[in-house]
């Protein structure tokens, strides 16, 4: 699983590196606080971090063979993922209404929109994949057909998605 995570991490490392390149050479990169609502992004971050904590709880329960607790924790994690996706969809719609496009935006450097939609889009796709993995893990665990290792692998992937968000949150929204 770690090998998958490292290679998937390389995908985001590539995105972040090219984003850094585009941002440094640009002299009119939009100022993030003027484009984004930081309290809203902070709330999204809170949801995702909390879902990582419930996933850790699920792995903990599964290792102790407390399957009903594990199922509840996994479902709570999936719910967190869905809330995060809903908030991201709202954020996208809001920015698109304000004129953000892949090839331009009202705030500055044209590349901003492309980097924003591609990076948050790829991350959001990972979240969506994670929710599907979590729901199938919950279904298997509810019928006692999952193993502690199975839950742990789903957990590793979910924490990785949270980890990527730490980087996007800092480098794209705060800097």
């Amino acid at each position: 699983m770690w090998w998958f995570i490292v290679t998937d991490g390389l995908l985001f490392a590539g995105f972040l590196a090219s984003y850094g390149y585009a941002r440094i050479l640009s002299d009119n990169w939009p100022n993030p606080p003027q484009v984004f609502s930081l309290p809203f992004i902070a709330a999204m971050t809170f949801v995702l971090i909390s879902s990582s904590a419930t996933m850790a709880g699920a792995v903990d329960s599964a290792k102790r063979a407390e399957w009903s607790g594990a199922v509840r924790f996994v479902l709570a994690t999936a719910l967190g993922g869905l809330v995060f996706l809903g908030m991201q969809a709202y954020e996208w719609m809001h920015l698109i209404q304000e004129g953000a496009r892949l090839n331009g935006n009202p705030w500055g450097a044209r590349a901003f929109g492309a980097y924003f939609f591609l990076m948050t889009g790829f991350h959001g796709t990972h979240v969506l994949t994670g929710v599907v993995v979590l729901l199938s893990t919950a279904a298997r665990a509810a019928r006692r057909r999952s193993t502690a290792t199975g839950v742990e692998m789903a957990g590793l992937y979910w924490h990785f998605v949270d980890l990527v968000w730490v980087f996007i949150f800092t480098l794209f929204y705060l800097l």
């Binding site: 990582s52 590793l156 924490h159 990785f160 949270d162 730490v166 980087f167 480098l171």
Partner: peptide, 13 residues
């Protein structure tokens, strides 16, 4: 950011 990444990878993962 590095502290957060370390916390997630070290403890959660």
């Amino acid at each position: 950011m590095a502290v957060k990444a370390g916390l997630i990878a070290g403890n959660f993962m």
